[in-house]
Amino acid sequence: MQKLATLFTQSYQEIKQLRTVTICGLMAAIAIALSAFTSIEIGNYIKIGFSGIPNRIVDCLFGPVVGGCFGGALDIIKYLVKPTGVFFPGFTFDAILAGLIFGSFMYKKPLSLPRILIAKLTVVLVCNIFFNTLWISLLYGKAFMALLPARLLKNAVMWPIDSLILFMVIQMLHASGIFKIIRHERP
């Protein structure tokens, strides 16, 4: 528990840095551009999108506090820039929670595919399958259990794909030295 409190305290300190705010602004711009132009649709229900990658990069670089704030703010900004469907605060809550979860798993921790798989699985189970299904059920008046099988299948298919894409992108950024530059670490 002490480690988690320290993690959140260190992440909270990050949010006070101008460099953090600047990088978050750049990542938000990249996320908005990616959401507008890039996605691969497989059938009616499966879509491989890349706009979540900047969120996860922020989570890795700056931790759960910054990741949660960034996720919530970006969810609202994306809706204002390109509204799709109705705005529902539950989805913003999910974006905040995903940032908190992923930041807790990845901030100041060694990069590994198993760590990303576990972090992504936690986000998938808590945010995507439970909460998102609940919000969709509430919004559209459909039974939670009726929505659940299709959402389980979709997330089971996308979990390893999204995790692998994220791992490759973060590994490439680590290898190129960009993370060290952002964190002001010596090579």
Results as ranks from 00 to 15, higher is better:
123 V>I: 12
59 D>F: 07
94 D>N: 12
48 I>L: 09
78 K>Q: 14
96 I>G: 01
71 G>W: 09
27 M>A: 15
124 V>S: 11
75 D>H: 14
37 F>C: 02
92 T>N: 01
20 T>E: 12
127 C>I: 08
118 I>L: 14
53 I>L: 14
25 G>L: 10
111 L>E: 13
117 L>M: 15
101 I>A: 05
28 A>S: 15
19 R>P: 00
109 K>E: 14
65 V>T: 11
30 I>S: 10
126 V>H: 11
32 I>Q: 07
77 I>E: 07
52 G>W: 01
131 F>M: 03
124 V>A: 13
43 G>A: 12
27 M>E: 03
28 A>P: 01
88 F>W: 05
54 P>K: 06
49 G>D: 10
38 T>W: 14
79 Y>P: 00
61 L>M: 08
20 T>L: 05
54 P>F: 02
99 G>Y: 11
115 R>L: 09
121 L>G: 04
126 V>F: 08
52 G>S: 15
85 G>A: 00
20 T>Q: 08
115 R>Q: 03
61 L>C: 07
43 G>T: 08
93 F>P: 00
104 S>E: 06
34 L>K: 07
114 P>N: 10
113 L>Y: 15
48 I>S: 02
87 F>C: 05
76 I>Y: 03
98 A>T: 05
77 I>R: 12
73 A>P: 00
130 F>C: 07
77 I>D: 05
72 G>Q: 08
56 R>D: 07
135 W>T: 03
45 Y>N: 12
43 G>P: 10
77 I>Q: 04
94 D>C: 09
53 I>T: 06
80 L>E: 01
61 L>E: 00
82 K>C: 09
23 I>W: 00
131 F>K: 03
27 M>I: 06
120 K>F: 00
100 L>F: 14
35 S>H: 05
54 P>W: 01
36 A>I: 02
51 S>H: 10
37 F>I: 04
75 D>T: 04
63 G>A: 11
107 Y>K: 14
31 A>K: 08
22 T>Q: 11
43 G>M: 07
104 S>Y: 10
62 F>E: 09
65 V>E: 06
52 G>K: 05
45 Y>D: 12
35 S>N: 14
31 A>D: 01
63 G>I: 11
95 A>V: 04
57 I>T: 08
69 C>M: 15
50 F>A: 01
54 P>E: 08
85 G>E: 02
99 G>A: 13
69 C>Q: 05
129 I>G: 02
45 Y>A: 11
41 E>F: 11
71 G>A: 11
122 T>I: 07
57 I>K: 01
131 F>I: 15
96 I>D: 02
109 K>R: 15
37 F>Q: 06
67 G>E: 12
37 F>K: 09
29 A>Q: 08
50 F>S: 06
52 G>L: 04
85 G>F: 01
76 I>W: 12
34 L>I: 05
130 F>P: 00
46 I>N: 08
58 V>F: 04
104 S>H: 09
33 A>S: 14
117 L>Y: 09
90 G>A: 03
26 L>T: 13
132 N>I: 04
101 I>S: 04
63 G>H: 09
65 V>L: 06
87 F>Y: 15
85 G>D: 02
125 L>V: 13
57 I>H: 01
130 F>S: 10
46 I>H: 13
57 I>S: 08
21 V>H: 09
59 D>N: 14
64 P>L: 05
114 P>D: 13
31 A>S: 15
85 G>C: 03
